[in-house]
Design a protein around this nucleic acid. Structure first.
Length: 419
RNA sequence: GGAGAGAUGGCUGAGCGGUUGAAAGCACCGGUCUUGAAAACCGGCAUGGGGGCAACUCCAUCCUGGGUUCGAAUCCCAGUCUCUCCGCCA
């Protein structure tokens, strides 16, 4: 959420920033609404002052006049709040502004590769896709999910279910024991206001699963990522400086409609309506966002290092970043069947963008109340990690070697085999 | 599901129709004292918005939304949330 005051005082700068996002937005409309809004506020306040003085004077002869003023105030208030709503609607749909170091570009072709790591496996046979492997093992069942639920769902069974659970546990252990994150098991449902805080609403409502829970006035949604519910822990709070940074991690199912991705990744479990993800969230002092982003990204890549999966780290360009981000690293894991890297984690700094929407603040060293910085990153997407293990660790006979680091989490199983 | 109680500043907590934006305490910041710290004492300390270069000033806000009144933190209605008791239940 952008500060209208800042926009007003730096129109050209704001326009330029939006151009980085390749956004076609009429800034003049914003300024016009802002001006109208302020005029109404001004008029309204003058009347309110007059009314206040009458009531203070307790002069009965003026009471009738006060009534007339009240009616006038109501009229102006209505006009003012309509304008303000329009303005807020526009402002809350404008994405965060990229940091200067973010490469300029419209789409993923302008993303910048930072590094590659790990050895891409060589196969003496044609590597199969994860869904072929999983179906042959009788441990991934897409048809069954279609029958019970619909497309873009899957039944994970038997040893792969264990592998999935092992991955969650392994990742959580790393982040809690080595990386200083506090484990949270949060609600999987969030209110509309919570969804607004992290930026899923109002613009991306079509991607969300709304559910009917009760007749309360707020709306409820299944979380598309634990980022939503973890970040909003600090909503409407003023945090003590000594309590920062706050680092939290959760393993949760995530629910996404994936509207607009028809025909994309329709096979397999790359793109599902429901998937597990281990999510890291950091709440930091605003100046520490960049260093925390580096730290968080390292926490994510460390998991891939330990699993011995080849990956690369890229910085997303201005046009490819998510709505709330000011800088994003994507981590992409190597998938032999596709012969390319696929996203397995995305770590973003949101600066104070989400904090402003959530009204999440802290007292800085000058005792001023200022907005916190928020960051989120997958550490990692569990479903896609499962995919990566199946494909990278596959054997010619269709069995899967269990990565060494996971074996303690899987009753020391060394291989996933049919039977 | 039934019956009650409550929601006030960063926190705790008074106030229950008219200088109350709000007592008091804690926390925090500045000062005196101290070799330094602690204690004690003095002072400061809510948020959002409008106007002004600024000192400053105006408006709103005591859970949310309506209503009564010249005037509402205080009265009325609706909603949300929290707590206690009873019932049901993983």
């Amino acid at each position: 959420m952008h500060n209208i005051k800042e926009i007003r005082t730096n129109i050209e700068g704001f326009k330029k920033s939006l151009q980085k996002r390749y956004l076609d937005l009429n800034v003049d409309v914003i300024l016009e609404l802002d001006e109208k809004n302020r005029k109404f506020i001004h008029d309204k306040e003058n009347l309110e002052k007059e009314k206040k003085e009458i009531s203070k004077s307790k002069d009965k002869t003026l009471f009738e006049k006060s009534k007339v003023i009240s009616i006038e105030i109501d009229k102006i208030s209505k006009l003012q709040s309509d304008i303000k709503n329009k303005l807020d609607n526009i402002l809350s749909s404008i994405p965060n502004i990229p940091l200067d170091d973010v490469p300029l570009g419209k789409d993923e072709s302008s993303n910048k590769e930072i590094l590659q790591s790990g050895e891409i496996p060589k196969f003496s046979f044609k590597p199969k896709s994860h869904y072929e492997l999983g179906e042959k093992l009788n441990m991934l069942d897409f048809d069954l999910a279609t029958k019970t639920t619909g497309s873009r769902f899957v039944f994970v069974k038997d040893k792969l279910a264990l592998l999935e659970r092992a991955l969650s546990n392994f990742m959580l252990d790393m982040h809690t024991m080595k990386n200083d994150y506090k484990e949270i098991s949060p609600p999987l449902i969030a209110t509309d206001n919570t969804m607004f805080g992290t930026g899923q609403l109002p613009k991306f409502e079509n991607d969300q699963f709304e559910i009917k829970l009760d007749d309360s006035t707020d709306r409820k949604f299944l979380i598309p990522t634990a980022e939503v519910i973890l970040t909003n822990i600090v909503k409407n709070k003023i945090i003590e400086k000594k309590d920062l940074p706050m680092r939290m991690v959760a393993s949760t199912p995530c629910f996404r409609k994936e509207a607009g991705s028809y025909g994309k990744d329709t096979k397999g479990m790359i793109r599902q309506h429901q998937f597990y993800k281990v999510e890291m969230v950091s709440i930091v002092e605003n100046d520490n966002c960049i260093s925390e982003l580096e730290r968080m990204t390292n926490c994510a890549t460390k998991i891939l290092d330990l699993l011995k999966l080849p990956y690369r780290k890229i910085m997303l360009c201005t046009g490819d970043m998510g709505f709330s981000a000011e800088m994003t690293y994507d981590i992409e894991v190597w998938l032999p069947s596709e012969n390319k890297y696929r996203e397995i984690s995305s770590c973003s700094s949101c600066g104070s963008f989400q904090a402003r929407r959530m009204k999440a603040r802290y007292k800085n060293e000058n005792n001023e109340t200022v907005f916190v910085g928020t960051l989120n990153g997958s550490g990692l997407a569990v479903g896609r990690t499962l995919v990566a293990i199946l494909e990278n660790y596959q054997q010619e006979d269709g069995s899967i070697i269990v990565p060494k680091i996971l074996r303690p989490y899987m009753n020391n199983m060394e291989k996933i085999d049919k039977i």
